[in-house]
């Protein structure tokens, strides 16, 4: 009984599914961003698991995880700026009322 790759992957899958549930059902725009962060963390967990178990010498998965963290930080900054701009224009953060692009 020792730590196996499957544990990491199943934990990441569970985190990803929780993130998708929050992404679809939440109505607060800030909570949608939090769900996106959960999704990115699940992917990072996958990368770290693969890096440790499939490539333990040249740890390329960790380099990928560093890049994903960079992109996630940039995405969070831009996303929160967009939410602020929408909040100033529409005076609400309810996702159901952002229907300007509805056909």
């Amino acid at each position: 009984m020792h730590l196996q790759l499957e544990y990491c992957l199943i934990l990441a899958a569970a985190l990803f599914c929780i993130g998708i549930y929050g992404l679809i059902t939440s109505r607060n725009a800030v909570r949608v961003l939090m769900s996106i962060e959960l999704l990115l963390n699940a992917v990072n967990l996958n990368l770290m698991g693969f890096s440790n178990f499939l490539d333990p010498v040249g740890i390329k998965g960790q380099v990928f995880a560093v890049f994903v963290i960079t992109v996630a930080a940039a995405e969070a900054a831009v996303g929160l700026a967009i939410i602020l701009a929408i909040y100033r224009n529409r005076d609400t953060i309810d996702m159901e009322q952002f229907n300007l692009l509805k056909w």
Partner: peptide
């Protein structure tokens, strides 16, 4: 636990220190 000390430190610095604080400011 997965032998990645640098990424663990970067995770805490970037996510807890920057992204989470940014989300709190947005709230």
């Amino acid at each position: 636990l997965l032998n990645a000390d640098f990424v663990a430190a970067a995770q805490i610095l970037v996510y807890v220190g920057a992204v989470n604080v940014l989300i709190l400011f947005a709230i």
